[in-house]
Design a protein around this nucleic acid. Structure first.
Lengths: 139, 139
DNA sequence: CTCCCTGCAAATGCTTTGCAACTAA
DNA sequence: TTAGTTGCAAAGCATTTGCAGGGAG
């Protein structure tokens, strides 16, 4: 993604631009993907960048607040951040930890429950857990 | 729930019976509910019991493995355990952290996606996030 | 005896925070 | 100047683990 596009996105979301934030946004906006803080740090290191851990965490929180990425809660061990912010759902392979998208139109609801009193809908998140990976590892 | 029922459940699930495990199972089986490790410990303390933290965690892992409770991943801060093990879904109030059940028949799918290659379905978990609590706290 | 459980304390691992130095408008 | 950011190290928390003592069969 072009730097100018990233700057435009930052402006739109009221995110002050810094070199570190641009580097992190650049990884996410390259393509829709699911990354943990650690995976971000790994990617930054690979490309020779030395953004600190604290800054990565702070930046992820900021990006989430501002809607540049979406947190997806699926693994109690660590948080994943999803650069696809449009509504969609996930497959989660419990054996490999792999997380993949389900296009939102391939799940349709025939019925949805009433909301509890005084509360308004925020999101509907479907996680389909699957087992066994392609290498057919036996238990 | 009667002690004899708990013992029967333990036998069925190949869980060795100990006083600590019975106390914890007793809390869960009283009624369907969602509890974190900390909430379990709190409940135990209230009733004068002194089960150690380590034992609570070990027991929750054992109960989950054996299917006495189900882990539900909804809050990145802590794990919740659900004593309703039959298929159903959840409301999660992001303001209050409250977790409540959605009867499984009040959500019906019109379409479900194909599974990825070589993987078999484990579960379909729907979390409907809602905002704002009944006390109408303004932002 | 032998196996397994309990509980304490220590260790782990992810995430947050305090704070001093720095950067940009 | 002045608010806001970075990075380091330290702190925080939920959870796990090591290990000694203990209980059931």
């Amino acid at each position: 993604m072009l730097r100018s596009d990233i700057l435009a996105k930052f402006a739109e979301l009221r995110i002050l631009s810094t070199p570190q934030r641009i580097e992190i946004a650049n990884i996410f906006l390259e393509k829709p993907q699911h990354l943990s803080a650690d995976q971000i740090i790994e990617r930054l290191r690979e490309s020779g960048s030395r953004v600190s851990k604290a800054t990565v965490y702070n930046t992820l929180n900021l990006f989430t607040e501002r809607g540049l990425v979406r947190e997806c809660v699926v693994d109690p061990e660590r948080r994943f951040y999803d650069s696809r912010t449009s509504p969609h759902h996930h497959f989660y392979n419990v054996d490999t930890g792999e997380l993949s998208d389900i296009p939102s139109d391939s799940i349709r609801f025939e019925a949805l429950p009433d909301m509890p009193a005084d509360s308004q809908l925020e999101s509907v998140d479907v996680v389909i857990k699957v087992r066994r990976d392609s290498s057919e590892k036996l238990s």
